[in-house]
């Protein structure tokens, strides 16, 4: 399995088995409770985000009124998990990583939430399902980025992607685990399955944020040619889920693509970007979106 089969497809499987079977180490100086609790908290909150994602018509665990608000709240819990891991490891690199993670997550949560406001204003709902259903016009192409508010939608979409990169601790904002300075940051001391949990959390959170971007900006499960299907066709959930997953996975690929391209920022650059650039931009977009929606709603 060294080269991992056709195009390396089995490499992930091999990695998972490897991580499952590796020794689970509890460093002698570590705090046993916090050290063990942190991966569970991080993983649990990442998985809880999936509860409100609308994958396809009829495929959603829970359609909450509060959909996206709930998701943001749950996502903010991972920050606590990161701090817990960093502190519980009793390692200075871990602690540095955790502090950076906390500062970064607290800073980027603001542009992240603010960049969600234009679509929330446009659709008038927190519910991801409702927002997706409102984008089914034009034969499945009535996405928010193609709507009459596209000039707000497109910048806010990129803003959301950038902020979610920082929120998920992905390159170029992966300072909490920057390996050239901090070994592996907050998960330096973790091994085996506990490390796998942090690893999986990162990718699960990436998928969840991509799915949110898909549901709010890229039309969710709506795809062109959808209207050709008969009303209530049994194919619709499957094709819808396929369209949703393709769009979300494309955004995940974009996040990985950013990782190939951009070098890691310094912590002061991260803070500058977050507070001086993204937050004012997000505020401006919020005002623009509110003005536009108010203009449109006028009789």
């Amino acid at each position: 399995m060294r080269t991992g089969g056709w195009h390396g497809w089995s490499q992930t499987l091999a990695d998972a088995i490897k991580l499952l079977t590796k020794e689970d180490i509890l460093p002698s100086g570590a705090d046993p409770v916090l050290f063990r609790l942190a991966p569970a908290l991080v993983m649990g909150s990442a998985l809880a985000m999936f509860a409100v994602l609308p994958f396809a018509p009829g495929i959603q665990f829970a359609d909450l009124d509060l959909g996206i608000y709930f998701l943001l709240a749950i996502a903010s819990l991972t920050t606590i998990g990161v701090i817990m891991a960093g502190w519980g490891s009793n390692n200075k690199w871990s602690l540095y990583g955790a502090m950076r993670g906390a500062a970064q997550a607290a800073s980027y949560e603001i542009p992240l939430a603010l960049s969600l406001i234009p679509p929330i204003l446009h659709f008038g709902t927190f519910s991801l399902l409702n927002a997706t259903e409102q984008q089914s016009g034009w034969g499945g192409m009535g996405w928010y980025v193609f709507s009459d508010a596209f000039w707000v939608a497109i910048p806010s979409f990129f803003l959301f992607l950038t902020a979610s990169l920082a929120e998920n601790r992905r390159a170029p904002f992966d300072l909490p685990e920057s390996e050239s300075e901090l070994v592996a940051g907050f998960h330096t001391e973790y091994s085996g399955l506990r490390f796998a949990f942090f690893f999986l959390e990162e990718y699960a959170a990436m998928f969840a944020t991509s799915a949110v971007a898909t549901a709010y900006w890229l039309g969710g499960w709506n795809f062109p040619g959808m209207t050709l299907l008969a009303e209530g066709s049994a194919w619709l959930p499957w094709l819808g889920a396929l369209a949703f997953l393709l769009k979300a996975m494309f955004l995940v690929c974009v996040m990985i693509w950013v990782r190939w391209t951009l070098p890691r920022l310094r912590i002061d650059q991260v803070m500058t970007l977050g507070w001086k650039y993204l937050t004012p931009l997000a505020l401006g977009l919020m005002v623009a979106a509110a003005g536009w929606e108010a203009w449109r709603a006028m009789p």
Binding site: A73, L77, T79, A102, A103, A106
Partner: peptide, 17 residues
Amino acid sequence: VTQVLLYAGGILVLYLF
């Protein structure tokens, strides 16, 4: 949800910091 978002995600992080 506000409680989770603000207390757990905001205020508590601030205190830990």
